[in-house]
Every structure is written in C-alpha cells, then in structure tokens.
C-alpha cells in the first residue's frame, strides 16, 4: 500500500508537480507502473495510462484481462502493490477514501442487500454524500421506472443494475468509473443508460466505462483502451481507428469459390498480412495507399472475379478480433 505522503487533499491536489502535468489535473486519470498480482497470478503487468478530462473512455478486454482490477485500484478498493495512481488531480494514498469522495464507482459484480427497499439501498450506496445527491439518485431511479418502496430482493437483475447506475450517476463529481454498467439490461434500457452517460460526458465528466458489449462502446466511447492479461495492448481514438481502417481492404467473392490459394497467388509483398474468412479476403496493407494491392489483384487473371471491394472500413468487432483473436460480443 502506498502511504509515503500524507499532505492534506487540497495541498496534494495543487502540488507544482501535479500542476505541471496536465494529466494530474481535475477530471483526469493517470497511472504509472501499476502492477498487481494475486498470489502467483499477475492481474496487471506494469501499466501506464493517461486519461484526459471529459468524455467517455471505453475499457475493453476479455474476462480476466484485468479491467475490474484496474478500476478497483483506481478507487482504492484493492490495496496498491506498486506504481502510482492519480485521479482527479489527487494521488491515491491509504485506502483511497479521498478519491472515492471525488469520484463514483459502480462495481461490475452485482450483489445488493435484498432485505433493503430500493430507497434504502440508494441511501446505503450514497453514504458519505449529501441529501441532494440522494434525491437526484431517487429521481433518476424513479425516472427509469424502479419501484423504490419495494425490497431489492424482488428486483430483476436489470432493475438492480439500474439502481446501482442511478446511484453512480447522482454525485456531483468529475469522474465516474462504471464497471459493466449496462450488463443485463434490455436494449431499450441500455440505450437509456447510454443516453444519460453521453449527456453527462458532454457536461465535462470523465467516464471510464468497461464493457463486453461492443455496440455500446462503439456508440458512446471517444477513446478505447484495450487490456489483455493485465497489459495495455492498444489505445485507440476515433482518428487512430480510421488510420488503422485506412490500411484495411476487404475483397468479397461469389459463393462457392475456393479462396485458399488466393493469398499465395497474390504474393506476400503486396500486403502486410492476408487471411481468408468465408467468402472474404481480409488484407492489412503496409501503407494506407491501396493502389499497389489493387493493381496486383487486377493483374492476376487466374484469380476469381470479386463481387465487392471495400477499403477504409473497420468495425469495432473486427478491431477486437484482430487484437484478441476471438469474437467480441
């Protein structure tokens, strides 16, 4: 646990070192050399990441990749073993209570107190916040149609998730850390939740959102951070995804054509990599100029004629598959 400094929050928030680095400013998240292991299992390899204030940042990765551990570390729920964490301009120290006062965190694992009524559960979740915050959470929950006078044990999984979401969105903070916040919600409720998240982000809040649902990440996130086996494997913005897309060509062939020999026939020199999937040839170019590849494709008359050629398109699903080698959901 990091406990090397104990200056008061106001002082720590405004140290010259922090002020010099904009990424340690209010609304930002910055981690350096973050390392975490549980016994023999390494949950996070040394991880460096900076998140600027404002916007929705998607944290993606398969199960066990370290997303939840990373989020728990940010708010001090997991004692820090090595590295440095700055959240909202404040360095994480001790059990992180000062950071939890300046952020909200919604856990991914959903276990509520069934014997409590919805209203009491909100009060429990918002302990340490003011009454106005509680009222806002109740208003959000009621707006989502939750029966707050009913005991939580009678709630469905999705209703419980909405209750936690309502509580996480209520505090007036600059950073929200939401782990799998839309898991278990139906499409309509998921859309409602994403609308609220996007509106909040537009008002300047930084939202770190972990999700397995690529559709919602694609819709809401301006930046995507991919983690696998505790390591940062990609950090993409909308522009970097389009740069990546500019190197991708997809050639579609008619049904029944055998494409196994196509990559060999085209030759390795025309692209960085090629692979066949069903009726499609997926090509990753070395540059964003497809002309050399298209010339080679047109010049080789032994190949079957394609029915469609796409260039410059990359879905998040494909990006996920290219990074992890498995399908995202």
């Amino acid at each position: 646990m990091n406990s090397t400094r104990s200056a008061p929050p106001s002082e720590r928030a405004l140290t010259p070192a922090a002020a010099r680095t904009g990424l340690r400013s209010p609304g930002s998240i910055s981690v350096r050399g973050l390392t975490q292991s549980f016994g023999d299992k390494v949950a996070l390899a040394p991880l460096d990441l900076d998140i600027e204030p404002g916007g929705v940042i998607g944290l993606l990765g398969p199960n066990g990749s370290g997303k939840s551990t990373f989020m728990r570390l940010l708010v001090g729920l997991v004692p820090l073993q090595a590295g440095e964490i700055w959240v909202d301009g404040l360095r994480l120290e001790g059990d992180g209570v000062e950071i939890r006062q300046r952020t909200t965190y919604a856990p991914g694992e959903l276990h509520l107190y069934g014997e409590l009524r919805g209203r009491d559960q909100i009060a429990f979740l918002l302990r340490g916040r003011d009454r106005a915050t509680r009222r806002r959470a109740e208003a959000t929950a009621e707006g989502m149609g939750l029966p707050l006078d009913k005991r939580v044990r009678g709630y469905s999984h999705g209703m419980k998730r909405q209750l936690v979401f309502a509580a996480a969105m209520a505090p007036d903070v600059r950073i929200r850390i939401l782990d799998e916040i839309s898991e278990g919600l139906d499409p309509a409720k998921r859309s409602e939740v994403l609308d609220l998240i996007e509106a909040d982000a537009k008002s300047g809040t930084t939202i770190l959102l972990s999700s397995h649902h690529l559709g919602e990440v694609d819709r809401s996130c301006e930046r995507l951070v991919f983690i696998n086996a505790g390591k940062l494997i990609a950090d993409e913005t909308a522009s970097s995804v389009s740069e990546r897309a500019a190197r991708i060509v997809r050639v579609t062939y008619p049904e029944g054509v055998n494409l196994d020999d196509v990559p060999r026939a085209l030759g390795e020199s025309v692209a960085e990599s090629m692979r066949v999937e069903g009726r499609q040839l997926h090509v990753m170019l070395e540059t964003d100029d497809p002309r050399a590849f298209l010339e080679a494709l047109g010049a080789n008359r032994s190949l079957p004629a394609p029915v469609a050629i796409e260039h410059g398109k990359l879905s998040l699903r494909e990006l996920y598959r290219s990074l992890y080698g498995v399908e995202g959901t």
């Binding site: 209570v97 856990p107 694992e109 107190y113 429990f124 302990r127």
Partner: peptide, 16 residues
C-alpha cells in the same frame, strides 16, 4: 459471503 463487500467498501467512507 454475501458478495456485498465491494459495495460496502466502494462508498466514500474510510475502512478504519
């Protein structure tokens, strides 16, 4: 045991 530990600790209240 109930799985509520994270919820209990996630609030802005010190462990002490």
């Amino acid at each position: 045991h109930r799985g509520t530990m994270e919820l209990w600790l996630a609030r802005p209240v010190s462990r002490l």
